[in-house]
Nucleic acid binder design. Structure first.
Lengths: 329, 329
DNA sequence: TCTCTGCGTGCATACGCTTGCATAGAAAGG
DNA sequence: CCTTTCTATGCAAGCGTATGCACGCAGAGA
């Protein structure tokens, strides 16, 4: 903040604009001049002001990610997004979904970021709509919003859930239940739909008391299994709409003295690193987060650099990971 | 970026500076004028440019956090830091430690942030030193750097490790080993020291083959136990320098058919939410991350707002959480 | 020797906001 | 009714960089 390009200019005996051009690698500056400027800059410990540059160029090389900080998934997403953005020399600003909506909007629209990645398109949030109306480059990640015409990079949740349910069917289970996510999220809806697809195909019916909706949380899985057991309505196998739910279910089962699998078979969804931790390996559906982030960033940068076509949706295939929690006794 | 305060000024029939003052709540602007300006701003959908404001005020209300994205702990820290900063109307920018050092420095020093929280003061990183020399408001979180005079908010790692080892001693274990962290981190060193404190006090000695250094990772715990078992040098109990190591150790033990506790007792450190997940509850030392972040933010904001005193170190007490993994057969 | 290119550089302005200083008009005091 | 004191507002100068345009000068061509 102290030493400016003007200081460097004086030290190098050139004008401020030459300093700018030399340092930014503009064509038409002879190597000798560049060297002199570089030296002067280094000698003075000159560091250009991002803020002034941003103001002058009307761009920030910064992307915001809106996440639900209560969902452990975000940490996985953010870490990878960071790396992916770094490859393109973009920076990352975090915005929590649970913040003041006004504040979120002003942050995004205040020009502190060139684009936004929204990993939490819960129904009811008007953020996607606002972003669309204001023409802020935006990509929905992991979840999409049917009603807003925005780019999205998502997993094939419906097909994945169908595979998950099939794994249980093929293992020979028939009394199959499901711990589903909230239907406010596209992931919740699609994974529920996929589950029902598979059962319908197999001509199997899930008892209503075996199917529960809840948050994508450890606690949902834990309480659901505890309550089902108490009510004596525990099925043989449970499809859990994500790994957190499955881990919670596994935990509850263990506390009840139930073996997994054996007494209760489980299949999750996501393939968090944690899925490999529990003492019983969790069978799950792997979501290719890395790929999803890569295309999310690609979509976003295209928007930022001027692409104006209609909304695109990239759907990534998912893949079953068979460990042991799905087996039949 | 389109509609500026000048547009609002014209619409409201006042000057641009009046718009600025009215919207920023400066004293001496009559309510009537404020109302007119507000209305005009709302009608035009005016959103002030953060960048221009930043440039004019030489402040950004933004804090950077430098984290090690390979360490799962960061997600816990970042989430809470976000909230804590939000309370003070500050924004958060993420910087990964594994990035290009040049780039990290230029980011931090380029004036895009008012201050920095470093949660990864590994020895060898010259970042703390640079920040100190440049007089960038900085607070070290979780780990500190002995050689650089910076504020820090840390846990009482040494005392915590001592409690952890004592838990094992008091449970009656005598053949106690430790899976320690890297000595490049203050947490690694202090937790190792605390472990040795407790053993020395009790007059117990740890066999060299029972003590291993490694990363703060699941993999370290996993491979250490696997290798010790293979070599026939497994102790009765292990102090793990953090929960990730403990979870890895527990996982390996299970694969080897060893019961935890019983065949192998474990105590961890941190009390991650995950510590409660495994089928055997992990006994651990709870680190008050929430408190640590609160004081880290307080320290930082004081620096940002001009405090110039010497370095302060806030040490937070830790607390044992007794589940079952520490028991004796 | 005199234009004509073209390269290297500088001048000046823009980016959108904050803020010290000046001023016009209203209120207060004599 | 005039001077003094506020009050409300406007003017204009930054903040530090990027960049269109103009210009000087050297070498080329005639």
């Amino acid at each position: 903040m102290r030493v400016t390009s003007l200081d460097v200019a004086r030290a190098a005996g050139v004008s401020q604009s030459t300093v700018s051009r030399a340092l930014r690698g503009h064509p038409g500056i002879p190597p000798e001049t560049v060297r002199r400027v570089r030296e002067a800059a280094a000698a003075l410990n000159y560091i250009p002001s991002d803020r002034a540059r941003d103001l002058a160029t009307r761009s920030t090389r910064r992307v915001a990610m809106v996440v639900d900080l209560d969902n452990p998934l975000w940490s996985l997403l953010v870490g990878r997004l960071y790396d992916e953005l770094a490859r393109h020399r973009y920076r990352l600003t975090l915005i929590a979904e649970h913040g003041d909506p006004e504040d979120i909007e002003s942050h995004v629209l205040g020009g502190s970021v060139d684009g936004v990645i929204v990993s939490t398109a819960a129904r009811g949030s008007r953020l996607p709509e606002v972003l669309h109306d204001r023409e802020v480059p935006t990509v929905l990640l992991h979840r999409y919003a049917e009603d807003v015409r925005l780019d999205a990079s998502v997993a094939d949740d419906r097909l994945g859930a169908r595979s998950a349910a099939r794994i249980l069917l093929e293992a020979g289970h028939r009394r199959i239940g499901a711990l589903l996510g909230p239907s406010s999220a596209s992931t919740g809806r699609d994974r529920a739909a996929g589950f029902h697809d598979a059962l319908a195909e197999a001509g199997v019916e899930a008892a209503p008391e075996h199917v529960r909706h809840g948050g994508f949380t450890f606690e949902h899985g834990r309480s659901a299994v505890t309550e089902m057991a108490a009510a004596g309505t525990l099925p043989d196998a449970l499809f859990c709409a994500n790994d957190m739910i499955a881990l919670g279910a596994m935990n509850a089962a263990h506390e009840l003295g139930l073996r997994v699998p054996g007494d209760l078979a489980l299949v999750g969804f996501d393939d968090l690193a944690e899925a490999a931790w529990p003492l019983v390996g969790l069978t799950t559906i792997r979501v290719p987060f890395e790929d999803m982030l890569r295309s999310a960033v690609d979509l976003l940068l295209e928007r930022i650099t001027g692409f104006r076509g209609g909304p695109r949706r990239v759907v990534h295939p998912v893949e079953p990971v068979l460990r042991s929690s799905h087996r039949r006794a």
